[in-house]
Design a protein around this nucleic acid. Structure first.
Lengths: 223, 223
DNA sequence: AATCGATGACTGACCAGTCAGTCATATAGC
DNA sequence: GCTATATGACTGACTGGTCAGTCATCGATT
Protein backbone atom coordinates (compact mmCIF):
# COMPACT_ATOMS: atom_id res chain seq x y z
CA UNK A 1 0.00 0.00 0.00
CA UNK A 2 1.58 3.16 -0.92
CA UNK A 3 1.57 6.03 1.38
CA UNK A 4 0.44 4.82 4.79
CA UNK A 5 -3.17 4.92 5.74
CA UNK A 6 -4.62 6.63 2.79
CA UNK A 7 -7.73 4.58 3.36
CA UNK A 8 -8.85 6.54 6.37
CA UNK A 9 -12.33 7.84 6.22
CA UNK A 10 -11.47 11.45 6.57
CA UNK A 11 -14.77 13.00 7.32
CA UNK A 12 -15.03 16.44 5.98
CA UNK A 13 -18.26 17.83 7.47
CA UNK A 14 -19.27 18.35 3.94
CA UNK A 15 -21.23 21.43 4.54
CA UNK A 16 -24.56 20.01 5.57
CA UNK A 17 -26.85 21.26 2.89
CA UNK A 18 -24.96 24.08 1.28
CA UNK A 19 -24.02 23.24 -2.25
CA UNK A 20 -20.75 21.51 -2.57
CA UNK A 21 -18.35 24.34 -2.96
CA UNK A 22 -17.12 24.11 -6.56
CA UNK A 23 -13.65 23.76 -5.17
CA UNK A 24 -13.27 27.47 -5.45
CA UNK A 25 -10.11 28.59 -3.77
CA UNK A 26 -12.41 30.53 -1.52
CA UNK A 27 -10.94 33.85 -0.57
CA UNK A 28 -8.52 34.00 -3.42
CA UNK A 29 -11.17 34.17 -6.08
CA UNK A 30 -9.36 36.67 -8.22
CA UNK A 31 -6.56 38.77 -6.93
CA UNK A 32 -4.25 36.25 -5.38
CA UNK A 33 -0.48 36.50 -5.52
CA UNK A 34 -0.36 32.77 -6.22
CA UNK A 35 -2.77 33.13 -9.07
CA UNK A 36 -0.58 35.83 -10.55
CA UNK A 37 2.52 33.73 -10.12
CA UNK A 38 0.82 30.88 -11.95
CA UNK A 39 -0.23 33.17 -14.79
CA UNK A 40 3.27 34.57 -15.13
CA UNK A 41 4.78 31.10 -15.18
CA UNK A 42 2.18 29.94 -17.67
CA UNK A 43 2.98 32.79 -20.04
CA UNK A 44 6.60 31.79 -19.89
CA UNK A 45 5.98 28.10 -20.50
CA UNK A 46 3.28 28.47 -23.14
CA UNK A 47 5.39 31.02 -24.99
CA UNK A 48 8.42 28.86 -25.19
CA UNK A 49 6.90 25.40 -25.70
CA UNK A 50 3.46 26.06 -27.12
CA UNK A 51 0.19 24.98 -25.56
CA UNK A 52 0.37 21.29 -26.36
CA UNK A 53 3.90 20.64 -25.21
CA UNK A 54 3.94 22.89 -22.18
CA UNK A 55 3.75 20.88 -18.96
CA UNK A 56 1.74 21.97 -15.97
CA UNK A 57 4.40 20.41 -13.77
CA UNK A 58 6.80 22.98 -15.17
CA UNK A 59 4.33 25.80 -14.74
CA UNK A 60 3.88 24.77 -11.12
CA UNK A 61 7.59 24.52 -10.47
CA UNK A 62 8.24 27.89 -12.09
CA UNK A 63 5.44 29.48 -10.10
CA UNK A 64 6.70 27.91 -6.90
CA UNK A 65 3.51 26.04 -6.13
CA UNK A 66 2.38 22.43 -6.23
CA UNK A 67 0.62 21.18 -9.30
CA UNK A 68 -2.61 20.75 -7.44
CA UNK A 69 -2.64 24.42 -6.60
CA UNK A 70 -3.07 25.32 -10.23
CA UNK A 71 -6.39 23.53 -10.11
CA UNK A 72 -7.53 25.65 -7.22
CA UNK A 73 -7.40 28.65 -9.49
CA UNK A 74 -8.08 27.26 -12.94
CA UNK A 75 -10.42 24.58 -14.18
CA UNK A 76 -7.90 22.88 -16.45
CA UNK A 77 -4.97 23.50 -18.74
CA UNK A 78 -7.04 25.02 -21.51
CA UNK A 79 -8.81 27.27 -19.05
CA UNK A 80 -5.49 28.49 -17.72
CA UNK A 81 -4.38 29.25 -21.25
CA UNK A 82 -7.49 31.15 -22.18
CA UNK A 83 -7.62 33.11 -18.96
CA UNK A 84 -3.99 34.00 -19.45
CA UNK A 85 -4.61 35.49 -22.88
CA UNK A 86 -7.70 37.29 -21.67
CA UNK A 87 -5.91 38.71 -18.68
CA UNK A 88 -3.17 40.05 -20.92
CA UNK A 89 -5.52 41.60 -23.45
CA UNK A 90 -8.26 43.00 -21.26
CA UNK A 91 -6.34 46.08 -20.14
CA UNK A 92 -5.94 46.99 -23.79
CA UNK A 93 -9.62 47.22 -24.50
CA UNK A 94 -10.13 50.46 -22.68
CA UNK A 95 -6.98 51.97 -24.09
CA UNK A 96 -8.17 51.33 -27.62
CA UNK A 97 -11.53 52.97 -27.11
CA UNK A 98 -9.75 55.91 -25.59
CA UNK A 99 -7.83 56.38 -28.80
CA UNK A 100 -11.04 56.67 -30.73
CA UNK A 101 -10.86 60.39 -31.15
CA UNK A 102 -7.25 60.84 -32.07
CA UNK A 103 -6.49 62.60 -35.24
CA UNK A 104 -3.12 63.14 -36.69
CA UNK A 105 -1.50 64.94 -39.55
CA UNK A 106 -0.06 62.53 -42.07
CA UNK A 107 3.43 63.73 -41.31
CA UNK A 108 3.23 62.41 -37.77
CA UNK A 109 1.70 59.04 -38.56
CA UNK A 110 4.84 57.17 -39.51
CA UNK A 111 6.68 57.98 -36.33
CA UNK A 112 3.65 57.57 -34.10
CA UNK A 113 2.70 54.15 -35.45
CA UNK A 114 6.26 52.92 -35.29
CA UNK A 115 6.83 53.95 -31.72
CA UNK A 116 3.43 52.71 -30.62
CA UNK A 117 4.12 49.28 -32.03
CA UNK A 118 7.71 48.96 -30.91
CA UNK A 119 7.20 50.24 -27.41
CA UNK A 120 3.78 48.87 -26.56
CA UNK A 121 3.94 45.54 -28.30
CA UNK A 122 7.25 44.47 -29.73
CA UNK A 123 9.27 45.21 -26.64
CA UNK A 124 6.70 43.83 -24.22
CA UNK A 125 5.09 40.55 -23.36
CA UNK A 126 2.22 41.49 -25.63
CA UNK A 127 4.39 40.32 -28.49
CA UNK A 128 4.30 36.83 -27.01
CA UNK A 129 0.57 37.02 -26.54
CA UNK A 130 0.07 37.90 -30.18
CA UNK A 131 2.39 35.08 -31.17
CA UNK A 132 0.37 32.69 -29.09
CA UNK A 133 -2.83 33.81 -30.76
CA UNK A 134 -1.25 33.32 -34.16
CA UNK A 135 0.13 29.91 -33.38
CA UNK A 136 -2.67 28.50 -31.25
CA UNK A 137 -5.65 30.49 -32.43
CA UNK A 138 -6.79 27.84 -34.81
CA UNK A 139 -7.06 25.23 -32.09
CA UNK A 140 -8.93 27.63 -29.80
CA UNK A 141 -11.67 29.28 -31.82
CA UNK A 142 -13.04 30.86 -28.67
CA UNK A 143 -9.78 32.63 -28.21
CA UNK A 144 -9.61 33.82 -31.78
CA UNK A 145 -13.13 35.11 -31.42
CA UNK A 146 -12.33 36.90 -28.18
CA UNK A 147 -9.31 38.51 -29.76
CA UNK A 148 -11.25 39.53 -32.81
CA UNK A 149 -14.22 40.97 -30.92
CA UNK A 150 -12.47 42.64 -28.05
CA UNK A 151 -9.30 43.81 -29.68
CA UNK A 152 -9.04 43.55 -33.43
CA UNK A 153 -12.50 44.79 -34.32
CA UNK A 154 -12.08 47.80 -32.06
CA UNK A 155 -8.67 48.60 -33.41
CA UNK A 156 -9.99 48.35 -36.94
CA UNK A 157 -12.85 50.71 -36.19
CA UNK A 158 -10.51 53.30 -34.73
CA UNK A 159 -8.09 52.80 -37.57
CA UNK A 160 -10.71 53.10 -40.24
CA UNK A 161 -11.99 56.31 -38.72
CA UNK A 162 -8.55 57.80 -38.49
CA UNK A 163 -7.67 56.87 -42.03
CA UNK A 164 -11.02 58.06 -43.34
CA UNK A 165 -10.48 61.41 -41.67
CA UNK A 166 -7.10 61.74 -43.28
CA UNK A 167 -8.55 60.85 -46.62
CA UNK A 168 -11.36 63.37 -46.23
CA UNK A 169 -8.75 65.96 -45.49
CA UNK A 170 -7.18 65.07 -48.78
CA UNK A 171 -3.96 63.75 -47.29
CA UNK A 172 -4.32 60.36 -48.92
CA UNK A 173 -6.66 58.20 -50.93
CA UNK A 174 -9.35 56.29 -49.11
CA UNK A 175 -7.97 52.91 -50.18
CA UNK A 176 -6.28 52.27 -46.88
CA UNK A 177 -9.48 52.87 -44.97
CA UNK A 178 -10.97 49.90 -46.81
CA UNK A 179 -8.20 47.58 -45.65
CA UNK A 180 -6.99 48.74 -42.28
CA UNK A 181 -5.46 45.29 -41.85
CA UNK A 182 -2.67 46.61 -43.99
CA UNK A 183 -1.58 48.83 -41.15
CA UNK A 184 -0.80 45.75 -39.08
CA UNK A 185 1.15 43.95 -41.77
CA UNK A 186 4.66 45.10 -40.85
CA UNK A 187 3.96 44.31 -37.22
CA UNK A 188 3.29 40.70 -38.13
CA UNK A 189 6.44 40.56 -40.19
CA UNK A 190 8.45 41.95 -37.29
CA UNK A 191 7.07 39.46 -34.80
CA UNK A 192 7.45 36.42 -37.00
CA UNK A 193 10.83 37.38 -38.39
CA UNK A 194 12.30 38.11 -35.00
CA UNK A 195 11.16 34.77 -33.75
CA UNK A 196 12.32 32.62 -36.62
CA UNK A 197 15.00 34.32 -38.65
CA UNK A 198 16.68 36.96 -36.58
CA UNK A 199 19.61 34.69 -35.88
CA UNK A 200 20.38 34.47 -39.60
CA UNK A 201 19.63 38.03 -40.57
CA UNK A 202 18.77 40.51 -37.86
CA UNK A 203 15.96 42.87 -38.72
CA UNK A 204 15.99 46.48 -37.59
CA UNK A 205 12.33 46.63 -36.71
CA UNK A 206 12.16 50.34 -36.07
CA UNK A 207 13.81 51.16 -39.36
CA UNK A 208 11.61 48.77 -41.24
CA UNK A 209 8.45 50.17 -39.70
CA UNK A 210 9.48 53.73 -40.44
CA UNK A 211 10.30 52.86 -44.02
CA UNK A 212 7.06 51.03 -44.38
CA UNK A 213 4.84 53.83 -43.16
CA UNK A 214 6.83 56.41 -45.01
CA UNK A 215 6.23 54.58 -48.26
CA UNK A 216 2.61 53.91 -47.50
CA UNK A 217 1.83 57.48 -46.60
CA UNK A 218 3.91 58.95 -49.35
CA UNK A 219 1.08 57.79 -51.55
CA UNK A 220 0.59 61.42 -51.83
CA UNK A 221 -2.31 63.64 -52.00
CA UNK A 222 -4.86 61.80 -54.04
CA UNK A 223 -3.50 61.90 -57.52
CA UNK B 1 -8.68 16.11 -21.79
CA UNK B 2 -5.10 15.15 -21.28
CA UNK B 3 -3.82 14.88 -24.75
CA UNK B 4 -0.39 13.37 -24.67
CA UNK B 5 1.52 15.03 -27.41
CA UNK B 6 5.09 14.57 -26.45
CA UNK B 7 7.73 15.19 -28.99
CA UNK B 8 9.37 11.83 -28.77
CA UNK B 9 12.60 13.04 -27.38
CA UNK B 10 13.14 10.17 -25.06
CA UNK B 11 16.14 8.03 -24.85
CA UNK B 12 17.46 5.36 -27.14
CA UNK B 13 15.99 1.87 -26.86
CA UNK B 14 19.54 0.64 -26.77
CA UNK B 15 19.03 -2.53 -28.68
CA UNK B 16 21.18 -5.32 -27.47
CA UNK B 17 24.16 -5.43 -29.78
CA UNK B 18 25.12 -3.46 -32.76
CA UNK B 19 22.68 -3.86 -35.57
CA UNK B 20 21.46 -0.42 -36.21
CA UNK B 21 19.93 -1.53 -39.43
CA UNK B 22 18.58 1.75 -40.68
CA UNK B 23 15.47 -0.25 -41.33
CA UNK B 24 15.58 1.14 -44.79
CA UNK B 25 12.54 0.17 -46.72
CA UNK B 26 14.92 -1.12 -49.30
CA UNK B 27 13.53 -0.59 -52.73
CA UNK B 28 11.11 2.09 -51.76
CA UNK B 29 13.82 4.46 -50.71
CA UNK B 30 12.32 7.48 -52.31
CA UNK B 31 9.72 7.35 -54.99
CA UNK B 32 7.08 5.09 -53.56
CA UNK B 33 3.36 5.66 -53.98
CA UNK B 34 2.91 4.71 -50.34
CA UNK B 35 5.47 7.24 -49.30
CA UNK B 36 3.60 9.89 -51.21
CA UNK B 37 0.30 8.86 -49.69
CA UNK B 38 1.82 9.15 -46.24
CA UNK B 39 3.21 12.59 -47.01
CA UNK B 40 -0.15 13.77 -48.32
CA UNK B 41 -1.93 12.45 -45.27
CA UNK B 42 0.67 13.98 -43.00
CA UNK B 43 0.20 17.41 -44.57
CA UNK B 44 -3.50 17.13 -43.94
CA UNK B 45 -3.14 16.06 -40.32
CA UNK B 46 -0.31 18.38 -39.37
CA UNK B 47 -2.11 21.28 -40.99
CA UNK B 48 -5.31 20.80 -39.12
CA UNK B 49 -4.04 19.70 -35.72
CA UNK B 50 -0.48 20.97 -35.51
CA UNK B 51 2.61 18.85 -35.03
CA UNK B 52 2.19 18.01 -31.37
CA UNK B 53 -1.45 16.97 -31.46
CA UNK B 54 -1.46 15.22 -34.81
CA UNK B 55 -1.61 11.44 -34.38
CA UNK B 56 0.35 9.05 -36.52
CA UNK B 57 -2.53 6.62 -36.24
CA UNK B 58 -4.64 9.16 -38.09
CA UNK B 59 -1.95 9.78 -40.67
CA UNK B 60 -1.76 6.05 -41.28
CA UNK B 61 -5.51 5.64 -41.56
CA UNK B 62 -5.81 8.58 -43.91
CA UNK B 63 -2.96 7.27 -46.04
CA UNK B 64 -4.52 3.82 -46.10
CA UNK B 65 -1.55 2.07 -44.55
CA UNK B 66 -0.73 0.55 -41.18
CA UNK B 67 1.07 2.62 -38.64
CA UNK B 68 4.17 0.50 -38.86
CA UNK B 69 4.46 1.31 -42.54
CA UNK B 70 5.16 4.92 -41.76
CA UNK B 71 8.31 3.76 -40.00
CA UNK B 72 9.47 1.98 -43.12
CA UNK B 73 9.70 5.34 -44.84
CA UNK B 74 10.45 7.79 -42.06
CA UNK B 75 12.62 7.57 -38.99
CA UNK B 76 10.09 9.10 -36.63
CA UNK B 77 7.33 11.67 -36.34
CA UNK B 78 9.64 14.63 -36.41
CA UNK B 79 11.47 13.25 -39.39
CA UNK B 80 8.21 12.82 -41.25
CA UNK B 81 7.31 16.41 -40.48
CA UNK B 82 10.60 17.84 -41.63
CA UNK B 83 10.75 15.75 -44.77
CA UNK B 84 7.22 16.84 -45.56
CA UNK B 85 8.11 20.51 -45.40
CA UNK B 86 11.27 19.95 -47.38
CA UNK B 87 9.46 17.98 -50.03
CA UNK B 88 6.93 20.76 -50.44
CA UNK B 89 9.52 23.53 -50.64
CA UNK B 90 12.24 21.93 -52.70
CA UNK B 91 10.51 22.36 -56.06
CA UNK B 92 10.35 26.07 -55.35
CA UNK B 93 14.06 26.53 -55.08
CA UNK B 94 14.70 26.19 -58.77
CA UNK B 95 11.76 28.35 -59.66
CA UNK B 96 13.04 31.17 -57.54
CA UNK B 97 16.50 31.14 -59.06
CA UNK B 98 14.87 31.15 -62.48
CA UNK B 99 13.14 34.38 -61.62
CA UNK B 100 16.42 36.02 -60.89
CA UNK B 101 16.52 37.95 -64.08
CA UNK B 102 13.01 39.24 -64.30
CA UNK B 103 12.52 42.90 -64.56
CA UNK B 104 9.27 44.69 -64.58
CA UNK B 105 7.92 48.14 -65.06
CA UNK B 106 6.43 49.52 -61.90
CA UNK B 107 3.01 49.62 -63.46
CA UNK B 108 2.94 45.84 -63.77
CA UNK B 109 4.25 45.02 -60.31
CA UNK B 110 1.05 45.32 -58.36
CA UNK B 111 -0.87 42.92 -60.53
CA UNK B 112 2.00 40.51 -60.97
CA UNK B 113 2.75 40.21 -57.27
CA UNK B 114 -0.87 39.82 -56.39
CA UNK B 115 -1.53 37.06 -58.87
CA UNK B 116 1.70 35.30 -58.08
CA UNK B 117 0.84 35.17 -54.41
CA UNK B 118 -2.81 34.29 -54.76
CA UNK B 119 -2.37 31.62 -57.40
CA UNK B 120 0.89 30.04 -56.35
CA UNK B 121 0.56 30.23 -52.61
CA UNK B 122 -2.75 31.31 -51.19
CA UNK B 123 -4.84 28.97 -53.28
CA UNK B 124 -2.49 26.03 -52.93
CA UNK B 125 -1.16 23.77 -50.26
CA UNK B 126 1.85 26.00 -50.00
CA UNK B 127 -0.25 28.25 -47.86
CA UNK B 128 -0.49 25.44 -45.31
CA UNK B 129 3.21 24.83 -45.48
CA UNK B 130 3.93 28.45 -44.71
CA UNK B 131 1.45 28.33 -41.86
CA UNK B 132 3.20 25.29 -40.47
CA UNK B 133 6.54 27.04 -40.62
CA UNK B 134 5.08 30.02 -38.82
CA UNK B 135 3.40 27.98 -36.12
CA UNK B 136 5.99 25.26 -35.62
CA UNK B 137 9.17 26.93 -36.76
CA UNK B 138 10.20 27.88 -33.30
CA UNK B 139 10.14 24.31 -32.09
CA UNK B 140 12.09 23.10 -35.12
CA UNK B 141 15.05 25.41 -35.63
CA UNK B 142 16.40 23.13 -38.33
CA UNK B 143 13.27 23.71 -40.28
CA UNK B 144 13.36 27.45 -39.87
CA UNK B 145 16.93 27.40 -41.01
CA UNK B 146 16.12 25.29 -44.04
CA UNK B 147 13.31 27.62 -44.98
CA UNK B 148 15.46 30.66 -44.52
CA UNK B 149 18.44 29.35 -46.46
CA UNK B 150 16.70 27.58 -49.26
CA UNK B 151 13.69 29.77 -49.81
CA UNK B 152 13.59 33.08 -48.00
CA UNK B 153 17.18 34.15 -48.55
CA UNK B 154 16.87 33.41 -52.25
CA UNK B 155 13.59 35.21 -52.58
CA UNK B 156 15.04 38.20 -50.79
CA UNK B 157 18.04 38.31 -53.12
CA UNK B 158 15.83 38.24 -56.17
CA UNK B 159 13.50 40.80 -54.65
CA UNK B 160 16.25 43.14 -53.66
CA UNK B 161 17.69 43.00 -57.14
CA UNK B 162 14.36 43.68 -58.75
CA UNK B 163 13.58 46.57 -56.44
CA UNK B 164 17.06 48.00 -56.82
CA UNK B 165 16.71 47.94 -60.57
CA UNK B 166 13.42 49.78 -60.35
CA UNK B 167 14.96 52.31 -58.05
CA UNK B 168 17.91 52.81 -60.37
CA UNK B 169 15.47 53.42 -63.16
CA UNK B 170 13.98 56.15 -61.03
CA UNK B 171 10.62 54.46 -60.63
CA UNK B 172 10.81 54.51 -56.85
CA UNK B 173 13.09 55.25 -53.96
CA UNK B 174 15.54 52.60 -52.89
CA UNK B 175 13.98 52.27 -49.44
CA UNK B 176 12.07 49.14 -50.30
CA UNK B 177 15.20 47.40 -51.51
CA UNK B 178 16.56 47.72 -47.99
CA UNK B 179 13.59 45.89 -46.50
CA UNK B 180 12.30 43.42 -49.04
CA UNK B 181 10.51 41.69 -46.16
CA UNK B 182 7.91 44.37 -46.60
CA UNK B 183 6.88 42.78 -49.87
CA UNK B 184 5.81 39.66 -48.01
CA UNK B 185 3.86 41.47 -45.33
CA UNK B 186 0.43 41.41 -46.96
CA UNK B 187 0.87 37.72 -47.70
CA UNK B 188 1.30 37.03 -44.02
CA UNK B 189 -1.74 39.09 -43.19
CA UNK B 190 -3.78 37.18 -45.76
CA UNK B 191 -2.71 33.78 -44.48
CA UNK B 192 -3.21 34.55 -40.83
CA UNK B 193 -6.44 36.47 -41.27
CA UNK B 194 -8.00 33.80 -43.43
CA UNK B 195 -7.18 31.19 -40.88
CA UNK B 196 -8.36 32.98 -37.77
CA UNK B 197 -10.80 35.73 -38.58
CA UNK B 198 -12.39 35.08 -41.93
CA UNK B 199 -15.50 33.72 -40.29
CA UNK B 200 -16.10 37.06 -38.56
CA UNK B 201 -15.05 39.37 -41.33
CA UNK B 202 -14.14 37.89 -44.69
CA UNK B 203 -11.12 39.44 -46.35
CA UNK B 204 -10.95 39.92 -50.09
CA UNK B 205 -7.34 38.91 -50.41
CA UNK B 206 -6.89 39.90 -54.02
CA UNK B 207 -8.32 43.36 -53.45
CA UNK B 208 -6.25 43.84 -50.34
CA UNK B 209 -3.05 42.81 -52.10
CA UNK B 210 -3.74 45.06 -55.05
CA UNK B 211 -4.44 47.99 -52.77
CA UNK B 212 -1.34 47.25 -50.80
CA UNK B 213 1.04 47.21 -53.73
CA UNK B 214 -0.66 50.11 -55.38
CA UNK B 215 -0.09 52.24 -52.31
CA UNK B 216 3.43 51.03 -51.82
CA UNK B 217 4.45 51.67 -55.41
CA UNK B 218 2.60 54.93 -55.68
CA UNK B 219 5.45 56.28 -53.65
CA UNK B 220 6.16 57.96 -56.82
CA UNK B 221 9.22 58.83 -58.65
CA UNK B 222 11.71 59.81 -56.02
CA UNK B 223 10.55 63.11 -54.80
C1' DA C 1 12.12 -21.41 -48.77
C1' DA C 2 14.11 -17.13 -48.54
C1' DT C 3 13.38 -12.36 -48.81
C1' DC C 4 11.04 -8.31 -47.76
C1' DG C 5 7.27 -4.93 -47.57
C1' DA C 6 3.47 -4.59 -44.71
C1' DT C 7 0.69 -5.14 -40.58
C1' DG C 8 -1.43 -3.92 -36.05
C1' DA C 9 -1.38 -5.50 -31.31
C1' DC C 10 1.50 -4.23 -27.88
C1' DT C 11 4.82 -1.63 -24.64
C1' DG C 12 6.27 2.02 -22.03
C1' DA C 13 6.86 6.90 -21.48
C1' DC C 14 4.43 10.64 -20.40
C1' DC C 15 1.33 13.89 -18.40
C1' DA C 16 -3.41 16.08 -17.23
C1' DG C 17 -6.09 15.86 -13.65
C1' DT C 18 -7.40 13.87 -8.76
C1' DC C 19 -7.73 13.53 -3.90
C1' DA C 20 -6.22 11.82 0.71
C1' DG C 21 -3.63 14.01 3.81
C1' DT C 22 -0.83 18.11 5.96
C1' DC C 23 -0.28 22.28 8.35
C1' DA C 24 -0.48 27.22 9.22
C1' DT C 25 -3.75 30.10 10.88
C1' DA C 26 -8.14 31.39 12.78
C1' DT C 27 -11.70 30.84 16.21
C1' DA C 28 -13.81 28.93 20.41
C1' DG C 29 -13.48 27.50 24.98
C1' DC C 30 -11.50 27.67 29.42
C1' DG D 1 -3.57 34.23 27.99
C1' DC D 2 -3.38 29.59 26.58
C1' DT D 3 -4.87 25.29 24.72
C1' DA D 4 -8.28 22.71 21.80
C1' DT D 5 -10.64 22.43 17.69
C1' DA D 6 -11.83 23.78 13.04
C1' DT D 7 -10.83 25.43 8.55
C1' DG D 8 -9.29 25.36 3.96
C1' DA D 9 -5.33 26.47 1.12
C1' DC D 10 -1.88 23.69 -0.30
C1' DT D 11 0.64 19.49 -1.47
C1' DG D 12 2.42 15.69 -4.43
C1' DA D 13 1.96 10.69 -5.10
C1' DC D 14 -1.04 8.39 -7.88
C1' DT D 15 -4.42 7.04 -11.71
C1' DG D 16 -6.08 6.59 -16.21
C1' DG D 17 -5.85 7.55 -20.84
C1' DT D 18 -3.08 8.63 -24.85
C1' DC D 19 0.11 7.83 -28.29
C1' DA D 20 5.05 7.29 -30.39
C1' DG D 21 7.55 3.72 -31.61
C1' DT D 22 8.45 -1.68 -31.78
C1' DC D 23 8.39 -6.29 -33.43
C1' DA D 24 6.50 -11.00 -34.15
C1' DT D 25 4.10 -12.47 -37.87
C1' DC D 26 1.88 -12.63 -42.40
C1' DG D 27 1.62 -13.03 -47.33
C1' DA D 28 3.37 -11.99 -51.82
C1' DT D 29 7.11 -12.52 -54.91
C1' DT D 30 11.07 -14.68 -56.71
Amino acid sequence: MSKGGRAAKRGPPRRGLGRAAPRRPASAARGSAKRDAILAAALEEFSSRGFATARLDDVARRAGVAKGTIYLYFRDKESLFQELIRAMLTPLIGAIEAMGGVDMPLAAMSERMTELFVREIFETRRKDVIRLIITEGRRFPKLAEFYYREVLARVLVVMRALLARMAARGEMTSDLARFPQIMAAPGLVAIIWSELFDRFEPLDVRAMMRTYFKLLFATGRRE
